Amino acid sequence: MALDERIQAASNFLLQSPPGEINDVLNDVRNIISDDDLLKNGITPALAEYNLAQFIVVDVPGADHQSIISEAARVPAEEGAEETEQRFLDPRSKTSFVFNHLDLEASDPKTVDPAPDSEPFRQALETAVTTYLTAHFPDGVGSVFATPGAPNRFIIQIVANKYNPTNYWSGRWRSEYTVDLGDNTVTGRILVNVHYYEQGNVQLATTHEVSLTLPPAVVTSTPASAASKILALIVDQEGHYQTSLNETYHEMGEKTFKGLRRALPLTRQKIDWDKVLGYKLGAELTSSKGVFGNA
């Protein structure tokens, strides 16, 4: 396999990495390339794509919270900036920072002045999101972005990770919503990824689309009241989706998985394993006897 084909294969493996396991995958694909410098240069675009899509979180320099790395957070690249050092916005601390996709660290913070037309409502949404996370996702991270050039449009992003390598599972919840006060709509999606790998390899990847129409009374109320009501609608949607997932898991355990295996063999009788061992031993003795008889 040519070198560029091996790099492409390594990149594809990285893009399919389960939550929290990209370093394990990276260590495995090192054997495919056998050259760390070439590997680093070749997979950087794939790492950047993965980090943005998976809502990787990073400690914000000079702050006591984390922020989400995503397309919504990306600041237009400055001329001459390296590909591994893109700049991202943390609207909560009103700073931007350089994020290195290889070492997953933030640096070089700079103060950013928010748009005065959208900041009051953005802050109200941020407060409501923080309250929601505290109640339902204690380890989750949320970011709320104003859309440049569209003061009535906002993007809410939420991510929560659970890594339990001791028990061979990991999971990630991501949700993203666009709140458009001009159209009185909330649209978005929920993405769930779970990986179980004890004596096997099973992955779950689901996507749930959300589309809501806001009552006029919500949009015309105060920012704090409107943000609280919008988050209540989102909470209701996410709660229903979690319930549906739980019901699906239960049904799969009771029906689907049982349907994949035959309860009884074709004889419609349970297997007597002691007899099976006896049959095997007898067959081996017969085979050995035949060999000695031909000698």
Rank of each mutant, 00 (worst) to 15 (best):
T222M: 04
F154G: 03
Y163D: 13
L125S: 06
Y197L: 10
L233I: 10
G278H: 06
V98P: 00
R6F: 04
I68V: 06
V141P: 02
L212E: 10
P18R: 00
A53H: 03
D117N: 12
V75P: 02
G149K: 14
A106P: 06
A53D: 04
G293F: 06
M252E: 03
A135F: 06
G282T: 14
A283D: 12
E119S: 06
D24L: 10
T84C: 01
T178R: 11
N164V: 15
T213C: 08
R92V: 10
Q157H: 07
P61V: 05
E85W: 00
E126T: 15
I56H: 01
Q237N: 09
R87L: 01
I33L: 08
W173A: 09
L26H: 04
Y163T: 14
S11F: 03
D274Q: 08
K280W: 05
N193G: 11
S221H: 05
N161R: 11
A263Q: 09
N41C: 07
H208S: 10
Q242M: 04
G142N: 07
P138A: 09
P18S: 03
Q8N: 09
V112Q: 02
R153K: 15
Q237I: 03
P61N: 01
I7G: 00
I271Y: 02
A232G: 00
F88K: 02
N294W: 05
S93Q: 05
R189M: 13
E254K: 08
Y279G: 14
D28H: 12
A2Y: 05
V29L: 08
V159W: 07
L214P: 08
A10V: 01
D272I: 05
Q66M: 03
P120T: 06
V218T: 13
P109Y: 07
E105N: 11
V194A: 11
T166L: 15
I234K: 00
A295M: 13
A77N: 09
P120K: 05
N167Y: 15
N41M: 12
N201L: 06
I158W: 00
S175P: 08
P91D: 05
E254I: 09
I56S: 00
T220P: 04
H136V: 13
S107H: 06
V98E: 02
T178D: 14
Y168N: 15
R189D: 14
T166Y: 11
I69S: 00
A53Y: 02
V57K: 00
S118R: 07
P19V: 10
L3S: 05
V58Q: 02
P45M: 09
K270Q: 11
A232S: 10
D64P: 02
F88I: 04
A124G: 12
P76I: 04
R172Y: 09
T147M: 14
V276I: 13
V144A: 07
I33G: 04
S175Q: 10
D108W: 02
R174M: 15
D59S: 08
M252I: 12
Q16S: 08
D24E: 15
